[in-house]
Structures are given as C-alpha cells and as structure tokens.
Computed example of a mutant assay.
Amino acid sequence: MEIRLLTAEDANAYWELRLEALLQNPEAFATSYEEAIERQHPVEKVANNLRTEGNYTYGALENGQLVGMLTLLVEQPLKLKHRANIFAVYVSPSIRGLGVGNTLVTKAIEKAKSIESLVKLNLSVVSSNKQAKRLYEKLGFKVFGVEEKALKLADTYYTEEHMTLILK
C-alpha cells in the first residue's frame, strides 16, 4: 500500500473515488452524489484544489489504484491560520479494517505538526460511524461539540461530533 500526496495528475482518480464515497456512505458527506454529478468540470476543479497551497490531499494506492483519501486544509484567514481541518476521509469498503484510515490520518497529523503555524486540527464525524470515531479518539482527537440533526438524508437525520486535536 502506497500513501502519498496527490497531485493534479490524480484528479480523475480522486473524482472517481469521491463519487464512490458519496454512493457508498452518503450519510458521511454534506455533498450528495446527485449534486456532485451535476457539477460543471469537476475534474478540473479537483485538479485546481490539488494545486492549491495549504491543501494537502493524501491518497492510498493499492496496485496503482486509488482506494483511500483524506484532505488536510489549512485555514487561510489571519485569525484562523493556527488551525487546519481534516475532511473528505474515505476508504473503499474492500480494504477497510486494514489500517489504511489510520495511516492516512497519521500522515495528516504528521504534516500538520510540520507546519509551524498550526496549533490544532479539527474534523467532524457522523456519530453513528463508530469505527471512525474510535480511530480519531485513538489518535488523540477529543469531542468539543455535538450537532444534532447536522445532516439529513431522505427522512433520516444524522448527528455529527466535532473533534479537535491540539498539536502544540
């Protein structure tokens, strides 16, 4: 398993995995699959994001195929430059339970610690995603807030837990 920063050349593979994520786990993302496929020039937008300073998107590749991803995004406003957010975390069902998520999050934490200005990392996780919550807690994240009815999918509401990891 190779874990590396994705580049603009990986945009198509990222977009395909993103669509898979939205189909496989719609409750875990604010964007719906239907909204995603309606976007104009999505691969170009992904490529631009992958080129953006302060945007670190890691990919897990198995035999050259992208099977996991995570984005670490450093806040840009002056008063928020001390923090970054982890989002768009996804691992294909076929390789879940093999430590890929742990490796991706650990890479993001290591990268965040290497950025002198960063003091904390934030993320949000759907409360019912027990496996992800356990992983984040194991790596030191703590819940700082709970948002009831944060997401709505069909007639079901999902609660999100907002978590933080103090780096320094």
Results as ranks from 00 to 15, higher is better:
106 T>F: 07
150 A>V: 00
74 V>I: 14
68 G>C: 10
30 A>M: 11
84 A>R: 01
146 V>F: 00
31 T>S: 14
123 L>E: 02
19 L>A: 06
79 K>P: 02
110 E>S: 14
131 Q>A: 15
40 Q>R: 10
81 K>I: 11
115 I>A: 03
102 N>Q: 15
120 K>M: 14
65 Q>I: 15
146 V>R: 13
38 E>T: 09
132 A>E: 04
63 N>P: 00
56 Y>K: 04
93 P>V: 03
126 V>F: 08
88 A>M: 12
89 V>D: 02
81 K>D: 01
92 S>M: 07
36 A>W: 07
89 V>S: 04
81 K>H: 03
138 K>F: 07
63 N>M: 03
120 K>S: 15
119 V>I: 10
134 R>H: 13
23 L>H: 11
20 E>D: 14
37 I>T: 12
141 F>K: 01
117 S>T: 14
80 L>R: 04
73 L>G: 05
105 V>W: 07
18 R>A: 10
68 G>M: 08
23 L>R: 15
44 E>A: 15
87 F>A: 08
97 G>A: 11
50 L>C: 07
119 V>L: 13
132 A>F: 12
71 T>N: 13
137 E>Y: 03
139 L>E: 03
26 P>Q: 04
87 F>I: 06
149 K>R: 14
44 E>V: 11
140 G>K: 04
78 L>Q: 02
29 F>T: 04
141 F>N: 04
61 L>C: 09
70 L>F: 10
38 E>R: 15
89 V>Q: 02
54 G>E: 06
149 K>G: 10
73 L>I: 15
148 E>C: 02
66 L>S: 04
87 F>Y: 15
90 Y>P: 09
80 L>F: 08
56 Y>A: 09
102 N>L: 06
27 E>W: 01
